[in-house]
Amino acid sequence: MSDLTLGPGHLSASPLTLRWRRFLEHRIAVLSGLVLLALVVVCFSAPLVEAWMGVDANRVNLLNRFAPPSAEHPLGTDDLGRDFLLRLLYGGQVSLIVGLAAALASAVIGTLIGVLAGYYGGWLDAALMRLTDGVIALPLLPFLIILAAIDLGKLPFVPEAWATGQDANLYRIVVIVSLFGWTTVARLVRGTALSVRQRDYVRAATALGAGNARIILVHILPNVASPIVVATTLSIGQIILLESVLSFLGLGIQPPTPSWGNILTNAQELIWNAPTLAIYPGLLIFITVIAFNFLGDGLQDALDPRSIAKR
């Protein structure tokens, strides 16, 4: 019976407050959010840490390889004598940036394709949905490896800077992951667009003279915003995982730029004399990915009232 007696708080609470309260009930998700916040803050304050420690993150010192933790190097040094803590922090920046950028790009591409397919329908819908099926059916990892390995210079329309520039690796990995990552959001948006398009309020809006852009922006996208947020949060973890795999295999972010994946590239040879170098980067990837997954799970519970009703 307690469900039926609403306290005074419920009467005044806005939907946003209710969602926030539901989110706070998911304790692991809240914890994950705090962990992620801390990781972001710590990783992006790496230049400050570097200045404060008075150590250059890229300085190679072959006389001080595999140094144990000390006051100067809190986590010791790596196989080239660089400070391992700073490597981890800068690597975290790269991994987090790739994850966030590729997830956002995937969400944007997916939303565009989903709206085109679901709102305009017809042959466009059929073609785009076959394309989506096709992309989902690709063996993901081998294709990512090929796309990471191809020589963009062989394509006539790619500017020189994109193929070989300073940050080319970073852009390329964001682009190729986004090429495969948009399908979930596209299906979500298409489904909502298909059903909302038929509703009376949309027909009323059309009768009042609302254009396609207005209907898409005001009626369709708000309806599908929550699932997009959830899917995108969950995809950040998967993308960080993919980036780490590609960088680990030597095809993603290229040294000397560190990422949590490529720090581990040599780890297999190092496990004999420096096991900690193999443990920390992987642990950070693991913690980040699991935190994004729990955060997505919590957001799903908070944003989708039906998932609570099931309990």
């Binding site: 995982l241 780490s244 795999v245 980067p281 992987g282 990837i285």
Partner: peptide, 9 residues
């Protein structure tokens, strides 16, 4: 969530 190559390691 575990990176498979790291689990292997």
């Amino acid at each position: 969530s575990i990176p498979p190559f790291w689990l292997a390691l």
